[in-house]
């Protein structure tokens, strides 16, 4: 913006350039303005060196000052090696399976017998059923809270026999096979079949310290 009361030479004079064509009145006004500006500048408080040091400290170490929450919600680029990721997934699944099995084995409802304070001793029990033509076979029983989705059997396609091996603590267990999620059938090789109270039969095995002999 240009002030109309000053000539261009007066503006040059205010900027500190040597000029001769301004009037004495203009020169006097300009000098008063310069003096007023200088007086105002002298009244300003100049920051000391400690302010510089504080600002530089913040600039030089931004990570230390950043909060965890800001880091947590911000977007990041993560480099993953597929081999290491696969190994981590396998380890996590194995760990979670172990915790899950320990949970069920530790339940008294599974009728397991803990003797001599050795409650973690288990024996491997193999379950098998011939069921050709079905898409899915699972094992549900008192050893897994009757969860019909937790223990899946693997099929030998040549024979139609589905099998799974489960670690069990010594004790007595009731169980059934579940075919295609909706057909519950007993195990013909179990030690016995008992009334489940609901009008059907449950299979029974007694797992000894050395395992199970089936008929």
């Amino acid at each position: 913006m240009t002030d109309e009361r000053f000539s261009s030479d007066t503006h040059r004079y205010l900027d500190g350039e040597p000029v001769d064509l301004i009037t004495d009145d203009e020169r006097a006004l300009a000098d008063r303005l310069n003096e007023a500006v200088a007086s105002y500048a002298r009244g300003l408080e100049v920051p000391g060196p400690e302010v510089d040091r504080a600002v530089m400290a913040v600039i030089s170490s931004p990570a230390r000052r950043r909060s965890f929450w800001r880091w947590f919600v911000a977007s990041h680029v993560v480099m993953v090696r597929p081999a290491l990721a696969a190994a981590a997934v396998i380890a996590i699944i194995a760990f979670s399976s172990l915790v899950s099995m320990r949970t069920f084995i530790g339940s008294e409802s599974a009728r397991e017998i803990a003797t001599s304070g050795d409650s973690l001793r288990t024996v491997l029990v193999r379950f098998e059923v011939r069921a050709p033509g079905v898409q899915r076979v699972t094992l549900a029983g008192s050893f897994n809270g009757w969860d019909a989705t937790a223990i899946g059997l693997t099929e030998n396609r040549a024979t139609g026999v589905w099998t799974v091996t489960v670690p069990l603590a010594p004790g007595e267990y009731q169980y059934l096979f579940v075919l295609d999620d909706d057909r519950w059938i007993p195990d013909p090789t179990a030690h016995a079949q008992v009334d489940d109270g609901f009008g059907q039969l449950n299979s029974v095995i007694a797992v000894g310290p050395r395992g199970v002999v089936r008929s």
Partner: peptide, 18 residues
């Protein structure tokens, strides 16, 4: 014998029935 070994009895009987 160790008390928990009585749990082997059903297996033994299953073998006899077989």
């Amino acid at each position: 014998r160790p008390p928990e070994e009585v749990l082997e009895l059903p297996s033994a009987v299953a073998g006899l029935l077989a």
